[in-house]
Design a protein around this nucleic acid. Structure first.
Lengths: 340, 340
DNA sequence: CGAAACATCGAAAACGTTTTCGATTTCACA
DNA sequence: TGTGAAATCGAAAACGTTTTCGATGTTTCG
């Protein structure tokens, strides 16, 4: 089960390794005759360049690393999809690692990828991560690096993001346009930037429409779960504050809200309108169908790889690379839960 | 930004490359004194072995390839999760490719992985794929290979599967136990093995309970979608055959059925009980909560990597490897949609 | 004291490719 | 026929590691 090598082709053809290599890479200084002979024999032996040797020689692996908090997540698997597709188009393969939102694991994985000498790294930070040494290592070693979604503004690298604040504003504006007067917000955890930004967007939308902000209308999730949504929905009904619209941090929680409202016979959207965030699959199959904000996950993946490739090529030429920030558009998807 | 090498350490310490290499790998024939000096300097220079060179020398990359039909799918992302976790535990990285159910892409990707000289390949076949040349290539090249979920029985490799037939039988048995007398089956596409097996399981369960099989109670999906479920639910109500239980090929379609029944005020499970397959996230958040069959996706990933690793190690010692088949247990998850 | 055993080291080959640079041959043209 | 240019080839170094095998020096022990 020996693999064919340049040497093997060279000796059977009675020429040098150099010439064989050149023939296969269409160098101009090899005659048509020998080129054809080489190509023919290479074909016959199913010759494939040994990528280990090529890597060593060229100092690149045509492989990039990707670290995300979790694969089993609608948004991230969409991004993964985009990255893989775009990478493959350009002859790159993708190694995926999962931090499970653990800073410690994330550090290990960065080290692994650096050690593997990937040509670049794309990453969405775990919640605990921020401006840590392992990230600086990447920059220090001048490894092309792109952050997406959960980013650290302190790290000077290319970034692909959405404007969470603007997206949230549009979602709340939509509720207002639908006639909602008293809008609650079920927000995410304290720390994550997107949680904060969506909250700020909610506030700004109220301001812009002259609606006074009322902090008792903001409910903070302890965890991003269906059950959390059920709980807050119950609380909202019990408090009976006259809330007629809810902007929820993400669809999963929003679906919990809908489930409880359905059970209690609350009319959605007529009594209370609901809008979520992220356009999970579940939002399209729930009754009533959930309005939400579309995050272009696939496109984010494509953009992230494009930026990475740009940096890879730029550095290859020895130039300095100026990090870029790409902000992708979101869009409100209006469905039954808010249409009135 | 020069990387430290063995040579660099050797020259600054005035010893040979050989000794440095041995010192770092704890060979017995290097004195304690020099070992400590080497380790200290290596630490100081942040020495990391150049994996390209190691790959070339050892002929292994500590990397495996994974080809799946699609990442953005609850089941597959679960498997991916298991594989990545288990691989990392053993020092392996995972390159993921997506066939998008296209035979052509699948072929290209197999070639890519072979060319990359991954240490092994794990794969779930696309629907069109069966006993094709590109798969045989893997075996011919003696690359460790494991199939999971969507497999070809014609390919003699290790496999990780669930018993779709048995799982389907149990699901239907559950409906019967709940008192269903006339049970319909919404089945999947014609070709895929799991679609066929689930159908056979449905038939067997009926037989076993002395219920005559009625082919007019079987509805064949043209596509695995929510809308398809809605459509068949409508048809079932219109036909009014007295159906009181439905076993559906997968949760997504089952949720479509539930949505239509909800809209028409059909009582689930009292008038018609419904059970799905795969335990998608959506099945837990729909109203009524959908009974389903749990596929241990994470465990399948773990098992698949374990088998692959076994083959890798076995072949490394030059032994012949005898393919193994692991069949994982499924379980019926009883929720509201069938509990009565 | 001489031989054997042991401890410590290093030279060198090998993995397979890419690329530089010089060598050789061929050919056109003055 | 001689000269320069063009065409064609190959030797060799380099990438950084691993490992075999032999060399040298040191200790032990009969």
């Amino acid at each position: 089960m020996k693999e064919a090598t340049l040497k093997e082709i060279a000796t059977t053809l009675g020429i040098s390794i150099t010439t064989v290599s050149k023939a296969l890479k269409n160098y101009p200084d090899v005659s048509e005759k020998t080129r054809k002979a080489v190509v023919a024999l290479a074909e016959e032996l199913h010759y494939m360049p040994n990528s280990f040797a090529v890597n060593l020689r060229t100092k690149e692996s045509k492989t990039i690393g990707l670290i995300i908090p979790e694969v089993v997540h609608h948004f991230f698997s969409g991004v993964v999809n985009g990255i893989i597709a775009e990478a493959e188009k350009h002859g790159y393969l993708v190694i995926i690692l999962q931090s499970n939102e653990s800073l410690e694991l994330e550090k290990k994985q960065v080290a692994l990828l650096i050690n593997k000498r990937v040509d670049g790294i794309i990453m969405s930070l775990s919640n605990e991560s921020n401006n840590d040494a392992h990230i600086k290592d990447i920059l220090y070693k001048e490894i092309p690096f792109v952050q997406f979604d959960k980013i650290s503004k302190l790290i000077p690298s290319s970034k692909v993001i959405i404007n969470d604040q603007k997206a949230a504003m549009e979602a709340v504006q939509h509720l207002i346009d639908m006639g909602c007067k008293k809008i609650a917000h079920i927000r995410g955890l304290e720390n994550p930037q997107n949680s904060i930004d969506r909250f700020l967007g909610y506030k700004k939308a109220l301001e812009k429409n002259g609606i006074p902000f009322d902090s008792t209308l903001v409910y903070s999730c302890k965890s991003i779960t269906f059950e959390q949504g059920v709980e807050f929905a119950k609380q909202i009904l019990e408090e009976d504050k006259g809330i007629d619209g809810i902007f929820v941090i993400t669809d999963l929680v929003a679906v919990g809200v809908l489930a409880y409202f359905n059970e209690k016979g609350i009319q959605v959207p007529n009594q209370i309108a609901v809008i979520g965030f992220s356009n999970w699959l579940v939002s399209q199959v729930i009754t009533p169908k959930l309005s939400t904000v579309d995050q272009p996950s696939y496109e984010m993946g494509v953009a992230a790889f494009a930026l990475l490739l740009e940096e890879i090529l730029c550095r290859k030429e020895g130039k300095v690379f100026e990090p870029k920030i790409v902000e992708l558009k979101t869009g409100v998807i209006v469905r039954e839960s808010s249409m009135r």
